[in-house]
């Protein structure tokens, strides 16, 4: 049983000219076995939360804490966070020219597992995982994400999720830009990961359509850099019906009072 606790998290995005506060006090606890959907309008800071927890250098945490089983995540380097069991499926996966997918996956698995996987088992494991996600074998010799379509990149994020099998996965708009078939394949991948039983998922999304494939236990509405309302799956239904207007108004009202 593992717990990821985010407490009163404030974070700034740092640009050349200035830094600007994006997260204004985020509170959230995810336990293993739970899936939390994290929904909000564009620009509400959802991706910032994902990056801040993963440790991207562009974001600075100004106060608050992130604890993984009581350990201070913010004290860890980016790679230490990953080895501790955090995973971020990125909205825009980065191309790394000249580094083959197979070399990358094996390096990542070696790092997170603490030892190099046995070559024969590893080859089988990768093959199976690729086939589950309907990824052609030829991709393993291509450079990481280079020239991949949006959908191919997303499949490869879930491939990594599957192979690295972290304690907690933050999925940042993994559904964006996917057609119906790709959405199903990717959702099936997320569900296979969830079936491990003791894994926690934070599913960041703008739309409700992925929630029909990946059922959340909790839904949070995120506006203005913080959680403004939390509930069960029914909250997603309301968003589907009426959008974010009620929540953005609520936020404005709160700001004025």
């Amino acid at each position: 049983m593992a717990t990821l606790e985010i407490k009163d998290l404030h974070a700034d995005v740092v640009t050349e000219e200035e830094s600007k506060e994006i997260l204004t006090g985020v509170n959230l606890t995810v336990r293993s076995g739970e899936t939390h959907a994290f929904m909000g309008p564009n620009g509400s800071g959802k991706s910032t939360l994902a990056y801040a927890v993963a440790g991207h250098p562009k974001y600075t945490v100004t106060s608050g804490s992130v604890l993984l089983d009581g350990e201070d995540v913010l004290e860890m380097s980016v790679d230490e966070r990953a080895r501790a069991g955090l995973f971020l499926a990125m909205q825009y996966p980065v191309e790394v020219p000249g580094v083959s997918m197979s070399n990358f996956l094996r390096s990542a698995a070696t790092a997170t597992r603490g030892e190099a996987p046995q070559i024969r088992h590893w080859v089988k494991e990768v093959k199976q995982a690729m086939s589950n996600l309907e990824i052609d074998e030829s991709f393993s010799e291509r450079s990481v994400n280079e020239g991949f379509s949006g959908g191919e990149k997303k499949r490869h994020e879930i491939l990594q999720l599957d192979l690295l099998n972290p304690k907690f996965a933050i999925l940042d708009e993994t559904d964006s830009g996917l057609d119906v078939d790709a959405l199903r394949v990717v959702s099936d991948g997320i569900n296979r990961y969830r079936q491990n039983g003791d894994r926690g998922v934070l599913l960041i999304t703008h739309y409700t359509r992925i929630l029909k494939h990946v059922q959340p236990d909790y839904v949070h509405v995120f506006v203005g850099g913080q959680v403004v309302e939390s509930g069960g799956p029914e909250l997603a239904d309301e968003l589907e019906e009426s959008g974010y207007v009620r929540f953005t108004n609520k936020k404005e009202a709160a700001a004025q009072s």
């Binding site: 993963a54 390096s107 790092a111 997170t112």
Partner: peptide
């Protein structure tokens, strides 16, 4: 690029 690789546990 460094962030991406490190985010997968690679030192």
């Amino acid at each position: 690029q460094l962030f991406y690789l490190q985010a997968r546990g690679i030192p």
